[in-house]
Design a protein around this nucleic acid. Structure first.
Lengths: 213, 213
DNA sequence: GCCGCCTTGTGAAAATCTTCACAATATTAG
DNA sequence: CTAATATTGTGAAGATTTTCACAAGGCGGC
């Protein structure tokens, strides 16, 4: 199953969504599901669901639908959730703590193996069994721990100095919470989580309504 | 300037990004900027920048570029940042606290005027000058305070009961941090901030690389 | 074993989004 | 004032994504 086609950002998001729906169905003990029902629980059409899945193979049975557990497993594999990812958290502030507390990451295959901060007063604290380390140790610890993904939960002004450490450590992906566009070496994947942008999209939508009325 | 055309999600995100770039330029005391330079600082092309802006009007001067301050002002207006929005935070947990602490919202026009939680042990705490209230008071307080936007920072399992309160209060927009698709009345806008989905998009991207190699 | 029903998988059409390419035009130099 | 230069605004072309619509199968009933 070697996939060559480029999969769009939105298709990948929908796959995540489908997986979440399937997990709900699993907890409801459902055996099968149709593209029709999947579309009802997401915000798409049945055709979209089938098209998205067909990008990766043929998982359903005609006249019958999809096996919930089987499809969930396949989506997990497609999304890279069938293995463990070694993750470092950089930034032991509020967002970082929300993430560590949330905890759901371990279950989904993301193992937080180290936590860093540049604030000397935070270094040394214990967070869920891990000691907060100085960012200066990043390169060494990250390579020792085979860190592949960094969660970057630091303020914008700290980004340049932190990124120097991160760039040198051969990390493959960054989940970026800082509201700024990261400059990263070729081959490093970045995904942004940006609540300010979403809030702006919201007030844009509301303003548009006002204008139309 | 009545806009009828439907503006795509991605175009709106780019507008936010352009505004952030313009604010950087303002702090660098720059007078003008070309679509070329804007594209260099974002991840788009100059044509894309011009096309996006042209959806709303004609803001530049040929041979000269855009006036930084003027364009920033126009984008703020387009994004609905030229007015105040009355916001309620629902969920006084880690994420909620990260948001309140972050603080940048006030400056951007989002006034957090009330905070709610369903956990009795949190009710009554003081958060940045506001008392955490019981979610049961939501409808009353939200209408009294003319709340338009709700930031929903609660766990998935709390969503159904909380949404009953929110639905009845005539809120217009929701910024949703819970990793679930909200069912909202007609006319209510929802934007999701979902770090799990972004993490999955990241591991998907990394898995794809592996597969190609 | 055959028929009727249901739902997938998928080409083709439609819609949407991005890039191209260039005329229009403001600015500056001579 | 004219020419040279720079950069916008925008139709048209190209690319991508979504929707449509239906043939291809699988399943249950008889």
């Amino acid at each position: 199953m070697s996939i060559v086609r480029k999969i769009s950002e939105s298709a990948v998001h929908r796959l995540s969504l489908y997986l979440r729906i399937l997990e709900d169905l699993e907890s409801e003990q459902r055996e099968t599901v149709s593209s029709e029902e999947m579309s009802g629980r997401s915000a798409t059409t049945a055709a979209q669901v089938r098209k998205d899945l067909s990008l990766f193979g043929s998982f359903g049975k005609r006249g019958w639908g999809y096996d919930v557990a089987d499809l969930a497993g396949r989506l997990r594999k497609i999304l890279g959730l069938d293995r463990q990812w070694r993750v470092a958290l950089v930034g032991a502030g509020r967002i970082g703590s929300a993430l560590v507390e949330y905890g759901g990451f371990g279950e989904r295959g993301y193992d937080v193996v180290a936590i860093f901060d540049s604030d000397a007063s935070k270094v040394g604290e214990k967070w869920g069994g891990l000691r907060v380390r100085d960012i200066g140790e990043f390169e060494e610890v990250a390579s020792e721990q085979s860190v592949e993904i960094v969660i970057l939960a630091i303020p914008v002004e700290a980004v340049p100095s932190v990124m120097e450490h991160v760039d040198r450590a051969g990390v493959r992906g960054i989940l970026n919470f800082a509201p700024t566009k990261l400059k990263v070496p070729e081959g490093v994947a970045v995904k942004d989580v940006n609540m300010v942008m979403e809030l702006e999209a919201l007030s844009f939508a509301l303003s548009q309504e006002d204008g139309e009325r």
